[in-house]
């Protein structure tokens, strides 16, 4: 590569100087030749400096970081018959829920011999399916990803980390994609809902929440959400309701494309910025589609309420 750069510099300088003193010499042509010669000379000086720096300084190579996700080695199908409730216990894992005829549990194995394999155990109990996984060592850097196929309609879903690893350094994630869930409770996990419908979503101490093209009838969130994103939601006609409370120093990002009703109950340290009203010190950023009707912001005692106005009437 450096050889090509040097060749281009030599060619540029040589041909440029030759053209500069050749017969065609109009002011515009001459000016362009000088500008291009300047660019080549600047590149020559810069390349020279960089080459000099490389010769003099020996830099330590940065160790390569391998990807966080482990390889899936085995998939075990589990029948869904007679099951209308799903309880998941997560340990250092990201679970993806997709529509399908039955649960497919992935047994995942880390390539490093020191790491234990992640095993998922399925148990049936009173019309519900319990999925638990055996935790890896506490200091394990490995993360695992498994996909579970849900029935198209699932009445109840509960996701939580096991008691043994609660308050530990483990990381939990949940992706829900293309399914319909009546009621979902997510505890202490990162959540992404994409192209899905959830009637009632309850988040308890979630880590990070992304709602992409998700229709949420009613959303309640409490605890330490530090990032909350709603992107292009499929908002029901009556407008989605979001309630978030008890969060200090949170960052929220909302982008709505339909009528909505957002109610934020903020902690004493929370900051809110919005461009719906004139910017003030310490305001947060809430924006909607420019095609939306005008928005109304009501600032109460520790709460902020944002309503989309349809035909001059606030929703809902």
């Amino acid at each position: 590569m450096i050889g090509l750069v040097l060749l281009a510099i030599v060619l540029g300088l040589g041909t440029g100087l030759y053209l500069l003193f050749s017969r065609p010499r109009g002011p515009a042509t001459k000016a362009l030749i000088l500008v291009l010669l300047g660019a080549v000379a600047w590149a020559a000086a810069r390349t020279g400096l960089e080459l000099g720096g490389q010769v003099m300084v020996f830099q330590r190579a940065i160790p390569v970081q391998y990807g966080p996700w482990r390889t899936v080695h085995e998939a075990i199908p589990v029948s869904w018959e007679g099951v209308d409730t799903l309880d998941l216990e997560l340990v250092e894992a990201s679970v993806e829920l997709r529509p399908g005829p039955g649960a497919v549990l992935a047994t995942i194995e880390a390539p490093e011999s020191l790491l234990r394999r992640l095993e998922v155990v399925a148990r049936r109990q009173d019309g519900s399916l319990l999925l638990e996984n055996v935790p890896p060592p506490a200091d394990s850097p490995a993360r695992y990803q498994l996909t579970i196929q849900l029935p198209m309609e699932l009445p109840y879903l509960e996701v939580s980390p096991p008691e043994s690893t609660r308050k530990s350094v483990h990381w939990f994630g949940m992706n829900i994609q293309g399914v319909s869930v009546g009621e979902a409770v997510i505890r202490e996990a990162g959540l992404e809902v994409r192209d899905a419908v959830i009637g009632d979503l309850s988040l308890r101490d979630p880590i990070e929440v992304r709602l992409v093209n998700a229709e949420i009838g009613h959303l309640t969130s409490s605890g330490g959400v530090f990032r909350f994103r709603v992107l292009d939601p499929r908002v029901p006609p009556e407008g989605a309701v979001y309630e978030i409370e008890g969060c200090d120093y949170c960052r929220y990002l909302f982008a709505f494309t339909g009528p909505f009703h957002l109610r934020l109950a903020l902690g004493p340290g929370a900051r809110l910025e919005t461009d719906l009203t004139p910017r003030r010190e310490g305001e947060s950023h809430i924006f909607g589609d420019e095609a939306l009707p005008s928005l109304q912001v009501q600032v109460g005692e520790g709460t902020v309420e944002v309503l989309a106005l349809l035909n001059g009437i606030s929703e809902p």
Partner: peptide
Amino acid sequence: VFFLSGSAFA
């Protein structure tokens, strides 16, 4: 040739 060489750096 000159223009292309100069263009890259410009």
